[in-house]
Design a protein around this nucleic acid. Structure first.
Length: 536
DNA sequence: CTGGGGACGGGGCCC
DNA sequence: AGGGCCCCGTCCCCA
């Protein structure tokens, strides 16, 4: 019996040893296979990246050809200068930068919107390590920069970049015709801009990123006097890349940092903004620069006249509303980019300024402005938000932006070209409607851009105009300063009181031409005609 | 009829 | 004086 127990114990020990050995063998096999599998995956990823890069280069070539065709069409076609500018930025946004020797160089248009010929704008995609510091000082007049503005250039910058850029610029990137148009279309006074583009980081470091993360901080400076940090007692301001901030009075400095992936996808449209801070980190294999491109694109050269489209602050004189948004974009995987606009009142770069909100183009934000043209664009083409960096759909977005609210603008303003005369020398870039001053056109262009810088602190509704926000806040305060003398009824708006008084007096000045029925308001007449006379 | 948002013109103020 | 900015009033539209 004891022998049986001993035997049994021995057998159990042997079995345990064998089992352990088997487990160890299995683990070893798994580890080996796993290592092999990882190696294969790595190689596949490398191959995939290489193919993707080739594809992008091909796309770039195609885009360049398209841009050249477009430019030729510009030369042939006699079109308004503003349209030409837009077309140029369309091209840029489509990634129709100019490739010179494998470099992507995005050349701004001439004039205020143009890179100078000596501006080093290059993204190195040929080397594994990309460390660049591209510092651009642009001046409408080369002499206007004056001694106070010095042109900086990083010592480590590959001189090839300069050469390539110069080559690209000299290669007729900006045809003389367009250059002239741009020069004449921009702000009259000489302005100076400085753009500092910094591209740093090694390719491999960026390639290691498994998650596409786009963090784009658009700190808004505005452009008018309110943006003056000294005046506001604020530090340097950031702002969304309002493209035309080069029209900011004085010299504002912008630093744009792009951790470029090895693909060289630091897609710099050349319409960056002063006083902007970008921090972009992307997975090269899954870069969805389409969004950034589109936003840049849609931002375009929106405001040629003074400041930026987003320039109007929401910090009004009475301090009623302070909205500072920092837009953070985080894109993971293939999910469509989502803009999350969070308030960062305490942010060191925020300064109690109103801020651009691009939420209109995004889905997940609760404060999405569904009327945003970008939102419309998303609705129509949801795929576009995850397009590759050099997709050619940027123009689609831009067209959407251009066309989205033109109709409303026409209905409101009486037509795209109406009022574009001497009295209204400030035409809208999108619909060409004329306005009497630059700020008017800035506000108006928000119709097209969907920018609503004024946010209600009570309900987070957003408005394109400060006065509308102020009016809206009466909803929360219950303020009804207009009271009917006949019935003590109170209204928040004078117009409401007037309409109400019409009801008292039965003043009906709107007469139906079909049946003669009279109405106190045009909308009643219209509804009546729609219902009874089938008039749309 | 009321409430409310979008948009624009005009006037006043300030620099 | 002129331009920029802000505010008000107003119209249009929709729910």
């Amino acid at each position: 019996m004891d022998n049986c127990m001993v035997f049994h114990n021995q057998m159990a020990s042997i079995m345990e040893v064998l089992a352990n050995a088997a487990v160890a063998e299995i683990c070893k096999l798994v580890d080996d296979d796993y290592a092999v599998f990882r190696l294969e995956i790595t190689q596949s990823q490398k191959e995939n990246r290489g193919l993707r890069r080739k594809l992008q280069l091909l796309e770039l070539k195609v885009a360049r050809e398209r841009a050249e065709r477009t430019l030729r069409q510009h030369v042939v076609a006699s079109r308004p200068s503003s349209v030409k500018i837009l077309d140029r930025y369309r091209g840029m946004a489509r990634g129709e930068g100019h490739l010179t020797g494998g470099l992507k160089s995005f050349v701004k248009p001439a004039g205020h919107n143009a890179w100078r010929d000596d501006q080093p704008i290059a993204i190195d995609e040929g080397s594994g390590t990309s460390t660049q510091h591209v510092i651009v000082i642009e001046s409408a007049n080369a002499d206007a920069a004056g001694p106070g503005v010095k042109q900086e250039r990083n010592e480590g910058e590959d001189p090839r970049h300069n050469r390539d850029v110069q080559t690209g610029a000299a290669a007729g990137v900006a045809p003389p015709l367009v250059t002239e148009d741009l020069a004449t279309a921009t702000a009259p006074q000489a302005r100076t801009r400085r753009i500092i583009t910094e591209v740093s980081g090694t390719l491999n470091d960026v390639l290691k990123s498994e998650t596409l993360t786009v963090t784009q901080r658009l700190l808004y400076t505005g452009s008018d006097h309110r943006s003056d940090p000294e005046r506001l007692g604020l530090g340097p301001l950031g702002c969304p890349p309002a493209p035309s901030s080069e029209y900011l009075p004085g010299v504002h400095q912008s630093q744009r940092t792009v951790n470029s992936p090895g693909d060289g996808d630091a897609f710099y449209t050349g319409i960056d903004d002063l006083s902007c801070s970008y921090s972009t980190e992307m997975d090269p294999g899954n870069i969805s620069l389409g969004l950034e491109t589109q936003t840049d694109l849609s931002r375009g050269d929106w405001n040629r006249y003074s400041s930026s489209v987003y320039s109007e602050g929401c910090l009004d004189k009475k301090g009623e509303v302070i909205v500072v948004d920092e837009v953070t974009v985080k894109v993971e995987g293939d999910a469509p980019p989502t803009w999350n606009a969070d308030n960062h009142l305490g942010d060191g770069q925020s300064h109690g300024r109103d801020f651009l909100d691009y939420r209109g183009s995004l889905e997940t934000n609760l404060n999405v402005d569904t009327h945003s043209p970008l939102h419309v664009f998303r609705d129509r083409d949801p795929v576009s938000t995850s397009l590759g960096p050099f997709d050619s759909h940027g123009s689609v977005l831009f067209d959407q932006v251009l066309n989205s609210k033109d109709q409303s603008a026409k209905t409101q303003g009486g037509g795209a070209t109406s009022g574009n005369n001497k009295d209204k020398p400030f035409p809208c870039m999108f619909c060409n409607k004329g306005f009497s001053c630059s700020q008017k056109v800035e506000i108006h262009q928000r119709i097209h851009t969907g920018v609503k810088p004024f946010s209600c602190t009570q309900c987070h509704m957003r408005f394109a105009q400060a006065c509308n926000l102020k009016r809206h806040q009466r909803v929360h305060t219950g303020e009804k300063p207009y009271s009917c003398p006949q019935c003590e009824k109170r209204f928040s708006r004078q117009h409401q009181l007037k309409m109400h008084l019409k009801a008292h007096t039965e003043e009906r000045s709107f007469t139906c031409t079909h049946c003669g029925k009279r109405f106190s308001e045009s909308c009643y007449l219209r509804i009546h005609q729609q219902k009874n006379h089938s008039i749309l």
